[in-house]
Write a protein that binds this DNA or RNA. Structure first.
Length: 98
DNA sequence: ACTTTGACTAGAA
DNA sequence: TTTCTAGCCAAAG
């Protein structure tokens, strides 16, 4: 597969920006929607450029935020109405469908 | 050019 | 349910 393109990076950022408040999406969902070969690339994009995106709406497939951000991210999500009982988001209910 | 490092995931134990 | 493993791929050292 060809190396990742700027278009794909921009698409990922658009997709993240398009997640409405109160909803979340997994890294895998975004990777799939942007036709990326691996969800790690989404993580790389978030790490590289998180400044102007609602990064807190992006969570792992197990319904948990990334470990180092868990506390802060859950707090932001809870403020938007995303229930995270026991530190875990109910994906079946809050997952955003593209 | 090679090795390590991640904001990951699906599957197995 | 959790923990572990292998696959994954761009970037940094």
């Amino acid at each position: 597969m060809a190396p990742i393109t700027d278009d794909q990076v921009e698409l990922v950022r658009r997709l993240v920006a398009a997640i409405p408040p109160g909803r979340v999406a997994t890294y895998g969902d975004i990777a799939s929607a942007a036709e990326l070969s691996s969800p790690r690339i989404v993580g790389w994009i978030m790490r590289t450029d998180s400044s102007d995106l609602p990064w807190h709406r992006v969570i792992t497939a197990s319904g948990r935020p990334a470990a180092h951000l868990a506390t802060r991210q859950l707090e932001l999500l809870r403020a938007e109405g995303v229930l995270a009982d026991d530190g875990r988001v109910d994906l079946a209910r809050a997952r955003h469908r593209f």
